[in-house]
Simulated scan of single mutants.
Amino acid sequence: MTATLPRVDTAPAAAVKRRRRSLGWVAVVPLLAFTAVAFGLPAWAVLDGAFTDKGTGAYTTANLTASLQGAYLTALVGSVKLSAVSAALATLLGLPLAQAVVTSRHRALREAVLTASGVLANFGGVPLAFAFVATLGNAGVLTRHLDLTDKGWDLYSFWGLVVVYLYFLIPLMVLTITPALEGLRVQWREAAQNNGATTAQYWLHVALPVLLPTLLGGFVLLFGSAFAAYATAAAIVGSSVPLITLQIADALSGNVLVGQENVALALSLDMVLVAGLVMAVYLPLQRRSARWLA
């Protein structure tokens, strides 16, 4: 005789799983609705206005063509150049600072630096511009005491704006790279030392190749942050340094030419495309870095 096992009915369990899955979708609906209203509608307005002729209301590519010519193209190139230079310098300066924080034996100092970095990375706009004008402007405290004007310093220039951007980009780089530095395993350094490698050789052949995706990802993140900045540059340099964000503001307000609102939307679309390219580079680099440091 063969014993027969009791039959287990899996239908109720499957029904419970389907019910939970449906309830999960219901819980996500408010988030999807908020995303559609807060991001979808503005994105559609920008896309529709960028391809619409303001006079006739017909769809056209004239706005995009105009956004890539003359002063608008100069402003786009200027924003890319400013963002790239600022991000590169912040990456180079933020890495050793983050390494010093990670290797510090003083826990209080480490927490203080990371906390300050979190605050400074979000400090920008008009308050930051005012602080630099009062400190390093033409009549700033340090400018007068150190005679910086006689030495060629000018806050209201391209390099002056780079220095201002470094104020919040370096702390952002510290916050970005610190988890990756903490993920470097002690065994890797010990193995390199046991094989006769110096500290420089360890960093050149082990640490930096592992950190490279995170460094490049951090650079891309800093580039995007600098590329989207507006209030700080507007308060410091005005129109003396051509930037795409300032051109958008001028076109919307009609400071230069009247009726250029749709060209401003085309410029905004150009910024969205650049930001999309930035994210397309950033996300794969983050995934590759996470595989090494997990």
Rank of each mutant, 00 (worst) to 15 (best):
T91P: 01
L82E: 01
L32K: 06
K151V: 08
L93H: 01
V77I: 06
H145E: 06
V220C: 02
R287E: 02
S117N: 05
T198A: 12
V8P: 00
L277E: 05
L76G: 14
A294N: 14
A121W: 03
A197H: 08
H106Q: 11
N138P: 00
R18C: 01
L169T: 13
L136W: 02
V210G: 12
L166V: 11
L221C: 08
T232G: 08
V164Y: 10
Q69I: 06
I170K: 02
L216S: 11
L41Y: 13
S239P: 03
S22P: 01
T115N: 11
D147L: 09
P42A: 04
L155V: 09
P127C: 04
A233V: 15
V16A: 14
Y156K: 15
D48F: 06
Y230M: 07
Y167L: 06
G49Y: 05
T103N: 13
L114R: 06
L293Q: 05
N195D: 05
A191Q: 10
H106Y: 13
Y230I: 04
T52L: 06
E190T: 08
F168V: 06
R110F: 08
G160H: 05
L246Y: 07
L32I: 13
Q201R: 15
S157N: 04
N122M: 12
I248N: 01
W159E: 02
T60D: 03
M1E: 03
A131M: 09
A71I: 08
A38N: 02
A294V: 07
T74V: 03
W44V: 14
A71F: 03
G49F: 06
L23H: 11
A226M: 10
A3D: 06
G94P: 08
F130N: 10
A11K: 12
T61S: 09
G55L: 13
V206N: 06
S67L: 09
N255E: 05
F51T: 13
D48T: 12
E111D: 09
A112I: 09
D48W: 07
A75F: 00
P30H: 05
T2S: 08
R18F: 01
L166H: 02
T198H: 07
S225L: 13
A228F: 13
L265C: 04
M279F: 13
E111N: 14
L161M: 15
G49S: 09
F219D: 04
R107S: 10
T245Q: 13
L93W: 00
S79P: 08
T65Y: 05
T74R: 15
V77T: 14
S86T: 06
L212H: 04
N138V: 11
D270R: 01
I248K: 12
T4R: 15
W153T: 12
A197R: 12
Q201M: 11
G196Y: 05
D270F: 03
V274P: 00
L136N: 05
L184M: 07
A75E: 00
R19G: 15
E111C: 04
L293V: 13
L73F: 07
P127Y: 04
N194V: 11
V256M: 09
A180Y: 02
A43H: 12
T143I: 09
T35N: 04
I177E: 01
L68I: 08
G276A: 14
A134L: 14
R20A: 15
V272E: 00
A27I: 11
T176N: 03
P209H: 01
A234L: 12
L68C: 07
F39N: 09
A45V: 03
A134T: 09
Q247W: 00
